[in-house]
Design a protein around this nucleic acid. Structure first.
Length: 505
RNA sequence: GACUCGAUAGCUCAGCUGGUAGAGCAAUACACUUUUAAUGUAUGGGUCCUGGGUUCGAGCCCCAGUCGGGUCACCA
């Protein structure tokens, strides 16, 4: 699509041709005998200089400083940057100075990949550098990178900041913006440390279908697609919950999946159409156990990722150390609105909601009303990790009724910084109760609630074979990563957030 | 979806009351054998997001659209 080349792009193509004319392959095929990362050299050279008499590093040129017959070049590898000192008469010991005068000085640009071989030394100004004896071109770059500079006080100049460009061209963002890579490395560390916790408990990581004919397990609008050979409609999953419970029926004691889910809804700072939820189901446990398990895990992974139990987010300090407060939802509503909703009818709750300024509509059932009141008046108060528990039965069609009060369920949601991070149940395993709950959802569906759940007959059949008491939880991984990396936008923790097409054609 | 702000050189931005477009970095050329936001001198580089309109004249004003940010709504 780049029919029109900029001046700089033309210069780079000319440099590419010139390089070939000098007998240099700008895209060689051979392996590069890299034996050190820049980070290792910088951290270990001061104590064991004898190990660095013959190093080979490779990376992308980030700056070039030419001072006549000697030059400095900074290259960036996966671990950071290192400087090379390039002296004309050292890399060109014979008559022919082409490699220095033409290739290095003129044909190599910021963005090109090179390898440097030589010994490590410290320059007059104290920077650990590679004293280069051999330089090789590894790959020519044809597009100019944004040049971000950092001054001696650590200030950044000419930062590459346009969010559209940063997200569309994440590869450029990763190259030039310090700290971006780190967010994604942390993201993977979060996943890995949770995996470690689950695997140590003996839980099995599994995979379940993404293409589902009944999009179940959550209240959300699905993406619809079509299978040609079967000639049937299929949906991208909005949740994997019902499949993981089938596996508990099948006899696994603990299963988990880091699941990409897809919801065909609005996008904003905390929603992307595809996102990742960790779902875990453990047999013979209840939601109280899950709270203990969760707060312990969150304390551990926070420490592992950030080095502390305390995180700062958006100017607030959040203490992730266990234990977390446990507040029944109706208590929370009582505290923040003064209204006790326990035992109140749908009509009474509706008028209370209206009286405190909440917009209500005809198709809102009891569960939805309570959800609205909590969402509007309460959740923002829970900055520190708090388990909100015992949701009304109408809000939780897949959750077991509360052992002490059958108007409530054994459910918790974990709120941190006013946002829901986790949602967990003592899973409903009474197949007759489950069928009735589905039928209630069907009535809501007919009433026009387009988020009500579909009836999944095969899931009911599985429950009829018997499922042990089980506790299950879902954790919004993207939001958890946001929290642990201090990012306020989901786009900052996804490599490739959803965006509109760049060009109309 | 609503409101709002924005889009100008490769990047970050400036651009007066409407009078043919500017800076820093990057680029090109030259100088410079330990620099580091290297430096000095010179030079080139523009579909001012797109399409209409007003005007003698539009980067600037008006209308429509595209893409993005923010806020809200929807939604976990």
């Amino acid at each position: 699509m780049d029919l029109q080349l900029s001046e700089q792009e033309i210069f780079r193509r000319e440099a590419l041709a010139a390089m070939r004319n000098s007998g240099i392959n700008p895209y060689p095929a051979d392996q590069v005998p890299v034996n050190f990362l820049s980070k290792t050299i910088k951290s270990e050279f001061p104590t064991t200089p004898e190990n660095f008499s013959s190093v080979c590093v490779a990376g992308r040129i980030m700056t070039k400083r030419i001072m006549g017959k000697a030059s400095f070049v900074s290259i960036m590898d996966s671990s950071g940057r290192i400087q090379g000192y390039i002296n004309r008469d050292i890399i060109c010991p014979k008559e022919d100075k082409t490699l220095y005068n033409d290739v290095f000085k003129k044909q190599l640009d910021i963005g090109d990949f090179i390898s440097l071989e030589g010994h490590v030394f410290t320059t007059k100004t104290g920077e650990i550098s590679v004293h280069v004896s051999h330089m090789k071109v590894l790959s020519k770059s044809l597009k100019p990178l944004p040049v971000v500079k950092t001054d001696s006080e650590g200030g950044t100049h000419d930062a590459f900041t346009d969010p559209e460009l940063r997200h569309r061209q994440r590869y450029v963002d990763l190259i030039v913006n310090e700290g971006v890579k780190d967010v994604f490395v942390k993201r993977t560390k979060v996943f890995n440390s949770m995996r470690e916790v689950f695997n140590n408990e003996g839980y099995l990581e599994v995979e379940t279908p993404i293409l589902q004919s009944i999009p179940g397990g959550a209240a959300a609008r699905p993406f619809k697609t079509h299978h040609n050979a079967l000639d049937i409609p299929l949906y991208l999953r909005i949740s994997n919950e019902l499949y993981l419970k089938r596996l508990i029926v099948g006899g696994f004691d603990g299963v988990y999946e880091f699941a990409k889910d897809f919801r065909n809804e609005g996008m904003d700072r905390t929603h992307n159409p595809e996102f990742t939820i960790l779902e875990i189901y453990v047999a013979y446990k209840d939601y109280k156990w899950m709270m203990d398990f969760t707060e312990q895990m969150f304390e551990n992974i926070t420490h592992k990722i950030t080095g502390s139990e305390k995180i700062s987010f958006d100017g607030k300090t959040i203490n992730m150390a266990a234990p977390y407060a446990r507040v029944p939802i109706l208590e929370a509503i009582k505290t923040h609105t003064g209204h006790d909703l326990l035992g109140k009818s749908e009509k009474e709750i509706k008028s209370i909601a209206e009286s405190i300024g909440i917009e209500v509509s005809a198709e809102m059932g009891k569960g939805k009303l309570i959800d609205e009141i909590f969402g509007e008046k309460c959740e923002k108060h829970y900055t520190q990790p708090t388990f909100i528990t015992d949701y009304p039965v109408e809000m939780s069609p897949l959750c077991k009724k509360h052992r002490d009060d059958d108007r409530l369920t054994e459910r918790f949601e974990l709120f941190i910084n006013g946002t829901e991070i986790a949602n967990a149940y003592s899973e409903l395993n009474d197949p007759i109760d489950q069928r009735e709950r589905f039928e209630e959802q069907l009535r809501l569906l007919e009433k026009g609630d387009d988020e009500a759940m579909f009836v999944d007959q095969d899931f009911l059949r599985a429950l009829e074979y018997g499922m042990p008491p089980t506790s299950g939880m879902g954790i919004g991984m993207d939001r958890l990563v946001m929290l642990l990396t201090g990012k306020t936008s989901i786009q900052e923790v996804l490599f490739f957030p959803q965006m509109r097409q760049e060009k109309a054609e």
